[in-house]
Amino acid sequence: MSEAQNEHESPIKTPKQLIAAIVAGFVVPIVIIVLLVNYVGNAARTGAGSSAMTEQSIAERIAPVAKVEVKDASAPRVYQTGEQVYKAVCAACHATGAAGAPKVGSADWAPRLTQGYDGLLKVALAGKGAMPARGGTSPDDVSDYELGRAIVYMANASGGKLSEPAAPAQPAAGASAPTAAAAPASGDTAAAAAAATAMASLKTAAPAAAGGSSADAGKKLYDTVCMACHASGVMNAPKFGDKAAWAPRIKTGMDTLHNAALKGLNAMPPKGGASTASDDDVKAAVDYMVNAAK
């Protein structure tokens, strides 16, 4: 009888045991839930803004704005290959046929190949249609010889059989840089003069004054350089006057747009390829396009 009675007796015999059981009934499940949540969400988390303190981010912030590169004027110049110049300068239009440029590898080159190397080089130096003189490059950055190599590369990739131009003579020891670069590689003085005239139109304009000279400079740079892509919207360039395309870009602020134009963005090279244009003229061209899209 006593054994049966013990089986039915509660293990809780005192008030203290009852309180302890109640507390354990609440606390233990809560502890288990907390442990499970911590286990499931145990992945490492990166605090908001912590990426700004990485070594790379800090190095980028304290990096100098400009760098001085000292070159030996008497050292032999290392020339770019035709393919290198094509990829860096010409591909923006000639890879897609933008703005009427003959697409590399297409039949568009057939009538142009009849001009021969000298005729093609003359057009490249002076500019034609939407293409600025020298493709928007500076003689200090891309020589006539390098432009000629790019022409040969594009022409031969499009069915031509042009020969590589002869490399210019390297300056003799002690010769000054201006003397070494005085004669154009092509030997065509008329083409060189035309190129110089065309490039002069892209150089720094007079400072803005009353009468809207800054706006004129912006329109001039757009008409000679920017329209190659922005007039038709090729290469994802926002089309001139297209409010929908420009709206999200305008929201980023004019400083952002100016910096993108000066430093380059995606397929657009720095200054749109007009390396001789001043920063103020490039900004004026951006302002001109933005105003047309408002």
Rank of each mutant, 00 (worst) to 15 (best):
S2P: 05
Q5F: 09
P15C: 00
Q17Y: 08
L18E: 04
I19A: 13
I19K: 13
F26A: 09
V28F: 05
I33D: 11
V37Y: 02
N38I: 15
A43W: 03
T46H: 11
G47N: 13
S51Y: 12
Q56P: 02
I58V: 14
E60M: 15
I62T: 10
V65G: 06
A73K: 14
S74N: 12
V78K: 12
E83K: 12
Q84N: 01
C90Q: 07
A91I: 08
A95R: 08
G100R: 11
A101Q: 08
P102H: 03
K103N: 04
K103P: 00
V104E: 13
V104K: 12
A110T: 14
G116K: 02
L120M: 10
G129Q: 14
M131T: 01
M131H: 02
P132T: 10
S138V: 01
D140L: 11
D140F: 01
S143Y: 06
A157G: 03
L162W: 00
S163W: 09
E164D: 13
A166L: 06
A169T: 15
A172Y: 03
S176I: 10
P178F: 04
P184V: 11
S186C: 01
A190Y: 02
A191W: 07
A194K: 15
A194L: 14
A195S: 15
A208K: 15
A217E: 04
D223F: 02
V225M: 11
V225P: 02
C226R: 06
H230M: 02
S232T: 13
G233N: 00
V234Y: 04
N236K: 15
A237H: 10
F240H: 07
K243E: 05
A245K: 15
A245I: 07
G253H: 13
M254S: 06
H258M: 09
N259T: 13
A261F: 02
L262T: 03
L265A: 09
G273T: 05
S275A: 03
D280M: 04
D281F: 12
V282D: 02
A285I: 11
V286D: 00
M289L: 05
A293Y: 02
A293P: 04
